[in-house]
Structure formats: C-alpha cells, structure tokens
Design a binder for these strands. Structure first.
Length: 577
DNA sequence: GCCGTTTTCGGCCCGACTGTTTTCAGTCG
C-alpha cells in the first residue's frame, strides 16, 4: 500500500471520528499523521522492511498508529477502517466536501432528515426541509444549494501555475487602487505547492471597508462568501476561493507567517512559543507574564517573528513541518538553497522543427532575454509521431542547423540536444551513432504508461545504461489532473541515476511538476543531481522556471545539486559520462 | 492518539466570520 493511500485512509478516519463527535485531539492526531506520511521521502513498506521499529519513530506516529500502519503494509487493508466505514452509507463522506457543511450539521441532517448523500441533501433543500431545523435558516439552506452546485461543477484543486496567474490578475486589479499599500501572496501558493485549493492574499490597506468593496467587485467574482473588516472571501471560476486578509502594517510579518502556513508548521511554531512563555498569532509575537499579561514584541517582519523564537527566517517552501523548525533552531537550514536567480540556463526546449511554436532563433532570443548563459534545443524523436518527431536522418541535419544558428549569437551557448523516447523495452528511439553527435541527450517516456512495476523499473534503468544519456526527463510521467505516475521502484531508479551520472529533471510544466518535491528529497538522499527545465514549446512557458525552483526548494535542494546553476564550463564537464 | 528539561498524566494553536442567536455554535483556515 502506497503512502498516499495510507494517508487518505487516516484522513477518512479523522472525518468519520469527527462526525461521531470523538475527542478532537484524537482526530487531530490522525490528520497530523496523514500529513506527516505524505511528506515522507520513502515508502512505509520499505521502512517497515528495513526495521518495523522505525515506523513508530516517524513524528506523529505512536504505538496505536504504527500498529495500524503495519496492518496496512502487511495485509493492504485496515480492519478498523472497514468497520467505521460500515457504519455509514456509501457517499456519505462526500458531503464533507460541500463547503459550509461540517460534521455537526451533517450529523443533524442525517439524524433528523435521514440524509445520506449529496443527492438527498439537494432534495431536502429544494423541499425547504433544511431551513425548518433548529439552528439552520433560509440563508444556510440557500448556501448549501450553491455549494452543491459548485461541488458538482468542480472537484479538486487547481495546478499551481494557473492559481499563480489568477492571483497575479487579482493583485494587479487591487493594486490599481491606491487604498492598497501592500499586497502579498500567502498560503500554499507562496509555499510553492504543486496544487492549490484556494488563493490567500494578504494586504495592508488604508480603509478596510472600501478595500473590501474593491475586492468583492473583482470582475470574475461569482459569489461573496465573507466580507468582514479583516477577512473577505470570493468564489471564482467554479470552486476556486480567493481570500483577502487585511492587517495592520505592524503585524504584517506575523500575519504572513500565519497565512503562509502550513498548518502543521504553524502549530509547531505556536507550540514552541508556548514553551518559551510566548504567544504567536497573526497579530504578532507576545511575551506572556506569569499573570497572563501579554506584551507585543515582534510582528512587522517575518524575520523578527522567527528571530524572537530563536530561529533564522525559514523560506516559505520549507514550511511543511519536515524538520525545518528544528533545523532553524540549530542553525542547520540549507545554506545555499537554490534560488531563481541562480539558474543559468534551460536545458529542455522545443522548436517548430517538431512540436514547438518557436524557431531556433526565437528560442535563443527568449533565453537571452531571460539572462541565460546557455540553453539546449531538445526536440522529439520519431516515436512521438503526433509531435512530428525526428528520425536519425532529420536529426543529423537538425544538429547542423542548430550549430549554424548558434554561431550567430556570441553571448549564449546553445547545446544541440534531443528528447529521445524510451521504448517499451528500455532501448532508445535513436541510434547511438546519432546520439554521440549531440551535446546533450535527454531520455523520456511518452508511451506504455501502464506497464507493471518490475518492467517499468527495468525499462528506466536500461535506458540510463546507454552511455549517451545525460538526463531523464519528467521521470514519473504523471499529469496532475489527467494521468497517474508510472509505477516504478523509485529507489532503484534514483540510485541508478546517481550511479550513472544521469541527471534527473524537475520539469516545471504546471501539469507535470515532475519529479515532485517528495521524490526529489529521496533522490537527493540517494545521491542524484537535478536540472530544472521548462520543456517550453512556446515563449511564455519559459516563465515557468519559478515553479520548478520552488519545487526544488521544497526538497531542500542546494545549488550544488542543481546542474543548471553551474557555470557553462562546469556543466560541460558534468555532461560527460 | 501523541508526547515529554511540563516525562506515564494532562495537556494538545488561535482567531474571524456567519447565521441564528440575545451570548453562541459551527465552520474554516
């Protein structure tokens, strides 16, 4: 059983226990465990295989939960969970996905009206039965109907690139109003998470009432879900919610820490503060006297908030409670975490010669505008027919063409490359006599996504055995909203990459983000190196580098582990196998 | 259910907004 499934079961258990009105701390423990498991760089089954005792060493996993994990690892099934699920009709937990509907109301609806699923709820609302219940009025009933409509229209989260674009649009719109003195993105978007449930914006304004008015008047707004003096929320384009928080300038930093999260990070920070006889909230850091009197001691800047708790400032991408607080307390945060400004080139790019929109010249000029020192043209091989992939003959000619064009530009090095397909058996879609002419060879899977784990693992490793291969592109092959990752033994593949000096790509395309942060953490442990590439087919896609850098930062990658931060000379040496 | 220079019990982060209330419960982040 995969970590993702274990985490999901723990979350479902938490939901059910909540409906059953169980101890809130017990519920919290299940949720915390789920979140910690998702952040693990290794599979629970592997950890268990190494030594079962290690399971209870995972933070948030004690005696009881480690037993449950063992059961799932061994049998692929959890008796306790099945029993709980048996108490509720199928489809009942879906109701928790309706915003504004929590465990208490849900329990009441089930007990009084016998509501078992979303359809039942809709019928009862339409029949005006819900508004008759104690504590529930006409407004609540209407809100539920709206929420059901949204639930049906759009389930799931937005990819980070789309959320980022939307946030930028809203920020641009708000910034036209001089009333807004400062606006920043917060939440999972600021942490660089690959998908985003809602967008959090934090602002300092002169007049909250008129700022709120401006915000809720945003042209794409479909619904106003909150409009107070510190918080406003609107719904937009289906289920996406945008929250605007308005705070005083002197607590902006504390608010930014708070609204950036993650939740687990915040909980740990507050816990730590409490031990130090301090209190942290979105309003600042306070010292607390024995009599309980609170005194404001920091809040304007994030740096000071962390500083008052004895820590260095923690970059947002690290704030997942994956050891960053402990590292900050002991001065062990990564020294040279990779940053966007460190990137010297983009090594995976397409042109009109296969399925890109730009000519080689266009592409080079874009790269120069980005300030890059080098780049690689890496078009598809013949297997990808839909992308007009090249055969040996065409590629040889294309190499000549790249070199000829590159000579016109003095300030940038242009590598002639290919994105060659990895065939079903792990051999490559291009003869070696052509590969050896290239400056960079990127291997990638675009077919046979469903092969079993053993053959998929063998396939990837065999591809990397080819001595001309420098890089493995989008190694998992997943498309976040459309396709699951390939099933392969990540440890074996990452270790093989490290051993063969094959660079692993962090593909920055919003649907890919591949490798993801968790995979990168493990690959780094196994000694692999990375390249952050946009895989651009059009000019604007080259702006995606920031998302890939954020992913690398989430994996705590430093400059030395990311080859496209190297000088060109060093990169050339790295590409020699 | 977890955790411990508060260590085997007694804690567990903190606050805003809404709707239905007349002081608060439920939900959300």
């Amino acid at each position: 059983m995969q970590n993702k499934e274990v985490a999901s079961i723990f979350r479902d258990i938490a939901d059910i226990l909540e409906i059953k009105d169980e101890n809130v701390f017990r519920i919290r423990a299940y949720r915390a465990a789920a979140s910690n498991i998702e952040g693990l760089p290794r599979q629970l089954s592997e950890i268990y295989g190494e030594d079962p005792v290690l399971i209870s060493g995972i933070p948030g996993i004690g005696k009881d939960l480690s037993e449950k994990i063992k059961e799932m690892v061994i049998t692929g099934h959890l008796e306790f969970f099945s029993r709980l699920m048996g108490e509720f009709p199928p489809g009942f937990l879906d109701l928790l996905g309706i915003s504004g509907l929590g465990p208490k109301k849900l329990k009441k609806l089930k007990d009084t009206l016998g509501i078992e699923n979303v359809d039942d709820l809709e019928k009862s609302c339409r029949a005006n039965k819900v508004s008759g219940l104690e504590g529930l009025g006409v407004k609540t009933q209407q809100k539920m109907l709206d929420a059901i409509a949204r639930f049906r229209r759009n389930e799931g989260r937005m990819t980070a690139d789309k959320a980022g674009e939307l946030a930028d649009e809203v920020i641009a719109y708000l910034s036209e109003d001089p009333n807004f003195k400062k606006i920043e993105k917060a939440g999972s978007l600021r942490r660089g998470v690959e998908t985003v449930g809602d967008i959090d914006l934090l602002a300092v304004v002169k007049d909250t009432a008129s700022a709120a008015e401006r915000f809720v008047s945003f042209s794409g707004r479909e619904e106003i879900t909150a409009k107070g003096s510190t918080k406003c929320s609107i719904k937009i384009g289906g289920a996406c919610q945008i929250d605007l928080r308005m705070v005083d300038a002197d607590c902006f930093g504390a608010a930014l820490v708070y609204f950036t999260g993650s939740k687990q990070h915040n909980i740990k920070i507050r816990h730590l503060a409490k031990k130090q006889k301090r209190k942290v909230s979105e309003y600042g850091v306070f010292s607390v006297s024995p009599s309980g009197r609170e005194k404001f001691i920091a809040g304007e800047k994030e740096k000071d908030v962390y500083g008052k708790l004895g820590m260095r400032w923690i970059p947002p991408e690290l704030r997942e409670d994956r050891g960053e607080i402990e590292a900050a307390l002991t001065g062990k945060l990564p020294r040279s975490l990779v940053a966007l400004g460190d990137v010297r080139g983009d090594l995976h790019l397409h042109t009109v010669d296969t399925d890109g929109k730009m000519s080689i010249e266009d592409l080079i000029e874009c790269a120069i505008k980005k300030g890059y020192e080098y780049m690689a043209v890496t078009n598809h091989s013949k297997l990808v027919r839909i992308a007009n992939g090249m055969d040996e003959k065409r590629l040889l000619k294309h190499i000549e063409n790249i070199r000829k064009t590159a000579r016109k530009y003095r300030n940038i090095a242009v590598l002639a490359g290919v994105e060659v397909d990895i065939l079903k058996d792990g051999t490559l879609d291009m003869e070696d006599y052509v590969l050896k002419e290239l400056d960079i060879v990127i291997a990638a899977v675009h077919s046979n996504f469903l092969a079993d784990k053993e053959s998929q693992t063998r396939r990837l490793i065999r591809a990397m055995d080819n001595k001309y291969v420098n890089m493995l592109a989008h190694p998992s092959g997943r498309l976040i909203t459309k396709r699951d990752p390939l099933d392969f033994d990540t440890d074996k593949v990452f270790a093989a990459a490290a051993e063969n000096n094959v660079i692993l790509e962090i593909n920055t395309h919003g649907e890919r983000v591949d490798l993801n942060d968790v995979n990168c953490i493990r690959a780094k442990e196994l000694g692999a190196r990375f390249s952050i590439n946009t895989d651009s087919h059009e000019a604007h896609q080259m702006d995606g580098m920031a998302l890939g850098v954020a992913t690398a930062r989430r994996a705590w990658l430093e400059k030395k582990e990311v080859v496209n931060t190297y000088t060109f000379d060093k990169l050339k040496k790295t590409l020699k196998r």
